[in-house]
């Protein structure tokens, strides 16, 4: 099995809001007390997801009390949420200047470095975080993610192990450890971890999808379809799972069922090149090469770099007795990193 990792964007980092405890406000207001009020107001804004107002309130608190490390920390957090990563980094640094052994601020710095693609610094601060608080599970989790993204799956598993040791019901860590194991070819281990992930959080639809894909790759098409069904019962518009369930059906020779799923995926995402390519694959299996050609051309129009679609179009052309066209497509597939393209072209196309 070959798997290609393409992490396109950081997207929504689902770090839980780590706002500090509310400070109790007294009636006779000193500047420090006013600062506390402003700080609490900032937290309120954060809860309302109004980061701009939150930043303003935390700034006011800092002006009133320049040694208010929690205000720095939370302003850093608000800046992070508003994607001002350099700003968040600066505020976490200031918080740490006031309180060196501050695990949340250390972790916040690590997150900021991660967002700024400074992975070495990120890892360094994750280490510092766990030195200060060895049960800081999120730090291990983020370290695991970094390792995963750099392709070091073995190390990733080790970090996820620590995250789970620190927090045994850590569903995300189970999911990600499963994915790392999958990359290492440990399908059985992956399946066990995906199952733990959904046991810890039965609403994790994507973990069900991942479980399905793992089973599909193992050839357990019925098991895969069951898992995809579960994912889709939680999120009916989940086009990835529709596309994947279609693939499982195709692999188990339920061609019409597969076509229905690819069609459903395309109804959710009309320009979904993967489902178009897979639709073409279904028609290849049906030996309806005209329909297959139509779909594979759509896939290529939707994604000109879809190597698999070129490979499939080569297969279609060969079956249409167009050897030259097949060669052209297989060579293109090879250029786009599909090894089968080179193999199919070898000999016939030289």
């Amino acid at each position: 099995m070959m798997q290609k990792i393409v992490l396109v964007s950081l997207g929504l980092l689902c770090f839980q809001v780590n706002a500090q405890d509310t400070v109790k406000v007294k009636t006779n207001l000193t500047p420090a007390q006013e600062a506390e009020n402003a700080y609490n107001q900032g937290l309120e804004f954060m809860n309302q997801k109004n980061t701009d107002m939150a930043i303003e309130s935390f700034s006011k608190a800092i002006n009133l009390n320049p040694s208010f490390e929690k205000a720095y920390y939370n302003r850093g957090f608000a800046k992070f949420e508003s994607k001002n990563y350099q700003g968040s980094l600066d505020d976490y640094t200031k918080a740490l200047g006031l309180k060196a052994l501050y695990p949340d601020a250390l972790y916040g710095k690590a997150q900021s470095f991660y967002a700024l693609h400074q992975n070495d610094s990120c890892l360094s601060y994750l280490n510092k975080t766990t030195l200060v608080d060895e049960a800081y599970s999120k730090a291990y989790y983020l370290a695991g993610q970094l390792k995963f993204e750099s392709g070091d799956y073995k190390e990733a598993v080790a970090e996820y192990d620590k995250a789970i040791a620190a927090r045994p019901d850590y569903a995300y860590a189970y999911n990600d450890r499963a994915s790392a194991k999958r990359q290492l070819g440990d399908d059985a281990g992956a399946i066990a971890d995906y199952e733990k992930a959904v046991a810890s959080d039965p609403t994790m639809y994507f973990a069900y999808n991942n479980l399905g894909s793992c089973k599909r790759n193992k050839g357990d098409h019925a098991g895969a379809i069951g898992a995809y069904n579960k994912a889709l019962s939680l999120k009916p518009d989940y086009y990835l799972a529709l596309n994947n369930r279609g693939s499982a059906k195709l692999n188990s020779n339920d061609i019409n069922g597969a076509i229905a799923d690819f069609d459903a995926a395309l109804r959710q995402k009309a320009d979904y090149a993967l489902a178009m390519n897979n639709m073409a694959s279904a028609y290849i299996k049906k030996k309806d090469y005209k329909a297959a050609e139509d779909w594979v051309n759509k896939a290529i129009r939707a994604d000109a770099k879809a190597g698999a679609a070129y490979l499939n179009r080569g297969i279609i052309k060969q079956m249409q007795q167009n050897e030259e066209g097949a060669c052209e497509d297989w060579k293109k597939a090879a250029e786009l990193g599909i090894p089968e393209g080179k193999r199919y072209a070898s000999g016939l196309c030289d």
């Binding site: 290609k4 990792i5 396109v8 569903a171 894909s213 698999a308």
Partner: peptide
């Protein structure tokens, strides 16, 4: 017989929304 190549992707990392592509032939 040349098996058609399916294109699939999963949300492998819980905290990352971008799906991860999988090619299998």
């Amino acid at each position: 017989e040349k098996a058609p190549l399916l294109m699939n992707e999963d949300n492998l990392l819980a905290s990352v929304t971008a799906p991860v592509s999988e090619f299998k032939a």
